[in-house]
Every structure is written in C-alpha cells, then in structure tokens.
Amino acid sequence: MSLKTISAPQAPGSEDAHQIDAVQHAEVERMAVILRQFGDGVPFEPYRYEMIIRDHLSRSAEAMLAAGRALIVARESLAHGDWMPFIERIGLEESLARRMMQAAYKFCDDKTVKLVQAAGNKSKLFELLVLDDDEIQELTDGGTVAGLEIDDIKRKGVRELRAALRDALEEKKASEKLLADKNEKIDALQTNLEKTKNRIAAGTVEEQTIEATNDVAGICLRLMADIMTPMRESISRLLELQPGAGAVVTGHIAQIQQALDEVSTEFLLGQVVANTPDWAQE
C-alpha cells in the first residue's frame, strides 16, 4: 500500500506575503545595482546627496557627470512625490536634471573618458548627447563622426560644435528618410505585385486562359520583330562584306529552327505548316 504525503495547509494570505517578499527583494537588488554603478559606496541619504550635487555643479564636465550619477541614485531612492522638492532645494530645473542624468548614463563607461575630457565643460557635453553609442565609440577610438575628431571637439566652441553636430544630424535624418521612402515604395510595389498575383490566381479559368494566350502571343511577336528587322539587317551587312558567308548564316538559322522544333515536340504541337491562302489553292 502506497503512502501519500499530505502537505500542511497554508495559512490564509501566505501566498500574498510571498509575492510581497519577492517584489521587495527585486527592489533591493535593483537599488544595489544603481548604487554600485552610480553611487559612491555609501548608502543614500537625501541631505548628503544634496551637498554632493551642489558641489559638483560648480565644476567641470567630469563633475557634472558625477552630479548626474548622484541624481540617478537620488531619483531611484526617493519616495514618490519627493523628487521635485529634492531638486528644487538644490536649485535645479527638472529638464536640466533630466539631461544631467542622461549624460551620466551615456558617458558612464570608462572608454568615454577621453571624450569627456575633450568636451571640458557641461555645455559641450550636453551637445554630444545627440550622438549614439556607435558614434561615441568611433570618436573614442580615434575615428571621425560628423566630420569631427576628438581634437576638433576640444578646439571648437559650443556654438561651432552645436552647428557641426546638428548639421550632421539633419543630414543623417534626411538620408534615413530617403531610405525609408525607397523602402516604402518597394514595399508598395511588392504589395501590388502580390495583389495582382492573387487576383490572377483567383480569376476564372477563362480569364486565366486569356492572360496566358496574350503572354504567348506577346513573346512570339517580340521574336518575329527581332527576326524581321535586326536579323535581316545583320545578315545583309555580312553578305555584302563577305558574299561567301551564306553557309554560316544558314547554320545559325538552322539552330533557330531546331529550337522552335524542340518547343513543338515538347508540347506535342505537331509540325508547323504555313497557312495557304485561298487564291493559291485555286
């Protein structure tokens, strides 16, 4: 006789408690990642982070990024509704705080140190936010983006840098739009082609027969046109230059005739006989 294991009944609400514990555990892990990547190794405390951010705001691009990292920690740590009062006490507008956090996130990699140093100040660093990750990587590797190298970023003023980057951005948008328009036209042609195929496939047998007959007639007419005009002109010119070339021409014509005979044999069309007009029969 087999023994069945009887599990103890769960207390009411225990499943909800487990879900709450799971959510809290995930939140703790998320905050650990934030502090590890953007924090200074010390647990978050609002007043201390206000002082850190104020101190960094008055300095260089590197300091602005440090302030942006501190803002990320504060934004993720503060309770709902505490964020706006926090940045107001520092004297920051919400849009500027958001740009600082974006810059800290974009330029948090050690590989971007050279680019940050070349920018030198937060105004030029903000202009570089229009670059995507591949373009930032290209610049830090010594390449050229928008006609600019790292030395150009260091040398140019904010206005010159903004103009160069925005011109490149507009050109990139125009190229992407042109490519999108081409793809849209190709998609439209493909869609129309599929519709035509479906319409033909869904047509009656009579409609499909008419279409196939027209296809055969069109091919035959094109072949006849090639024979009647360009072929005659070429043969005439060859025989004028070399009257004894008749055998060569006959061989080519025989190949054409053989190809036509093969088509007739393949489809059991029988021997092709020219129609004799009534007056000739009489």
Score class of each variant (00 low, 15 high):
L241V: 09
I227A: 06
G270N: 01
K172Q: 10
A217V: 15
G142F: 04
V116A: 06
R162P: 07
Q190R: 13
T191P: 13
E282N: 10
E135K: 01
R54S: 06
R30L: 07
R232Q: 13
A11P: 12
D21A: 15
A61I: 05
L223G: 09
Q242C: 03
I210A: 05
I253P: 05
L161G: 08
I72F: 03
M31L: 15
A32T: 14
T191L: 13
F38I: 02
L221V: 15
A174N: 11
G218W: 11
G41V: 11
G68R: 02
I227T: 13
L189W: 12
S264L: 11
T144V: 15
R75C: 10
L128Q: 10
M1I: 09
S14R: 03
D261P: 03
L241Q: 12
A70L: 02
A26H: 05
G81K: 02
K156H: 07
P43C: 01
A180M: 05
E170W: 01
E282A: 10
G41Y: 08
Q117S: 12
A74W: 01
P230V: 03
E170Q: 10
T250F: 01
L65E: 13
F86K: 00
D141P: 00
A32E: 15
W83E: 14
A67G: 15
D110V: 10
Q242A: 08
I20K: 01
T112C: 04
A67P: 09
A8H: 15
M64H: 11
A26Q: 08
I150T: 14
V263H: 05
Q257S: 06
E62Y: 01
F126R: 03
L57I: 02
L260F: 07
E176W: 08
D110A: 13
G218P: 02
G246L: 00
T276M: 13
R75P: 05
F86A: 06
K185V: 14
L223H: 14
A74F: 01
I210K: 00
Y47W: 00
I52W: 00
A168W: 13
V248D: 12
I53E: 14
V216W: 14
A168F: 13
S175M: 02
A26V: 12
S123L: 06
A103Y: 02
P243H: 00
S175Y: 00
A119T: 10
E135L: 00
L148G: 11
E76W: 02
T229D: 13
R30C: 05
L179S: 10
F107I: 01
E135T: 00
A97C: 06
N275F: 12
P12K: 07
G246Q: 09
L238M: 08
D109R: 09
Q258D: 04
M1F: 08
T250V: 05
I210S: 01
G147P: 11
N121C: 07
E27V: 11
A174V: 06
A174E: 15
A174S: 10
D151A: 14
L169F: 03
G91T: 02
E135G: 01
Y47V: 11
Q102W: 03
Q10R: 12
A280G: 07
S58G: 05
T204I: 11
I227N: 12
I150C: 09
V263N: 01
E29A: 14
I34D: 14
I136A: 04
R237C: 04
L268I: 05
I136L: 07
P277M: 08
